[in-house]
Nucleic acid binder design. Structure first.
Lengths: 243, 243
DNA sequence: TCAAAAGTGTTATCATTACACCCATGT
DNA sequence: ACATGGGTGTAATGATAACACTTTTGA
């Protein structure tokens, strides 16, 4: 037991961001090439240290989101994944990182921030395939971010966070397919989604792609939680389509 | 942007524990009466600061579990809930707390630790009812711990973590009922649970309570994830039985 | 023989799946 | 007309819910 004069050891607090978006129906994550040691030249999740003693952790996530991805956090889905604090995860000292999951719509332009030489949207299957090595424990964080996103698609309406203001049902379906890594029957999906009250609401307009019948446009409804959940196909049974 | 000499501000790292157990078919959480300021005399979740620079966060959770609840973490379900780091959550300074959810079986003896005057198992409905005020942001943490436990019952086999080595199906059902706050049909529950491969395995023995037909005893099987999930009744529809 | 708790059978209902089919548009 | 993608109908299957009923024990 510590004596009376004992004070707790200080640690450095960082935030790391798992930012997902959909590009060409494939899930992408924003990675930055590290410009400084440690792990200089390797790819890492965007993130950084708390700026000052008074900054809230969530505020730091907002700030990094803007600095490194040029994304306005107030427009985005952003939720905490957890804390990662293994004593030796950062060679510079005792760093505890709070990781966040962010979901961005459309095709945002990545923009390299201050301490990142380059930022790039990388297809998640490429990272999971092991062809890209991540710095620190960022591969673990990415995995847990992906699993969280998959689970959230079942229980909440975050799928719309991947889409623009208005979207078609097929665009929404591609979100589910890309994140879950499965192929879904579009006809069943169509009704299942519409059967959920206030998940998506028709906006009255249509989108014509030049081919085929125009698709109705929808916007996100007021519902945030899905009950009953949209249970994803069993990982064992899943046909692992998409890429 | 910070200048070149800038170093990140240090924070103090704490762990807090949401330890659940079942007593008389009611969900209880371990609370300690704070012996020191701030919030002296109030009830709080057990927890404490990181002991030294080299201690892993999870190890600190293990240590506090033993110190404050006399529970061996290696025998318990223990998972991280997340980090709580609002700048003003602790008047002593910038403290970021990593919260853990722990689930203990049976009727463990609480044991007051070093910096806790008293430790007590408190019925969760009492705390949620607002009759007990919690220190810091511990009410938020408790809520999120409860929600996590509820969700985990749907998707994983943690229900067995509330039970002793061997248990009856009815004991398992009371876990679900107490945590979800609903009443379940025992006959449907009986089959549903047994239909899940390797969730529980019969141990061959029986338990006689003195009344009625003896119940078969089971132990936890090798399965950890439940697919398809055991979807809990809708919160809106739930009859909110139990207490 | 009765109360109490364990465990089984059966049916209605609901959700999911699979897939045939029709609709609206551009070329 | 036909290709293409949007959208509807429907029957089979599987999971859930409701509840009547049988079994095994202690008193």
């Amino acid at each position: 037991m510590p004596d009376d004069d004992w004070t707790p050891p200080p640690v450095l607090l960082a935030v790391d961001l798992v930012i997902f978006t959909l590009i060409d129906s494939t899930l992408h994550v924003l990675l930055v090439e590290r410009g400084i040691e440690p792990f200089q030249g390797d790819w890492a999740l965007p993130g950084g240290f708390l700026e000052d003693e008074r900054e809230a952790v969530l505020a730091a996530a907002h700030r990094e989101l803007m600095e490194e991805a040029n994304l306005d956090a107030t427009q985005l889905h952003l939720e905490q994944l957890g804390a990662y604090g293994e004593p030796d995860r950062d060679p510079r000292g005792r760093v505890v990182s709070v990781a966040y999951l962010a979901i961005a719509p459309g095709l945002p332009e990545p923009r390299a921030g201050t301490d990142a030489a380059h930022a790039r949207w990388v297809p998640v299957p490429d990272v999971l395939g092991g062809s890209i090595k991540l710095a620190f424990d960022h591969e673990t964080i990415l995995h847990e971010g992906l699993e969280r996103a998959r689970a959230q698609l079942e229980h909440t309406a975050i799928a719309t966070a991947f889409c623009d203001e208005t979207f078609t049902i097929n665009e929404l379906q591609r979100v589910y397919e890309a994140v879950w890594g499965v192929a879904l029957d579009l006809r069943n999906f169509y009704r299942k989604i519409q059967a959920v009250d206030d998940f998506i609401v028709p906006v009255g307009a249509e989108r014509r792609t030049g081919k085929g019948r125009p698709a109705r446009l929808f916007k996100a409804g007021s519902r945030t939680t899905l009950y009953p959940p949209l249970v994803r196909p069993s990982p064992a049974t899943a046909s692992e389509g998409n890429g």
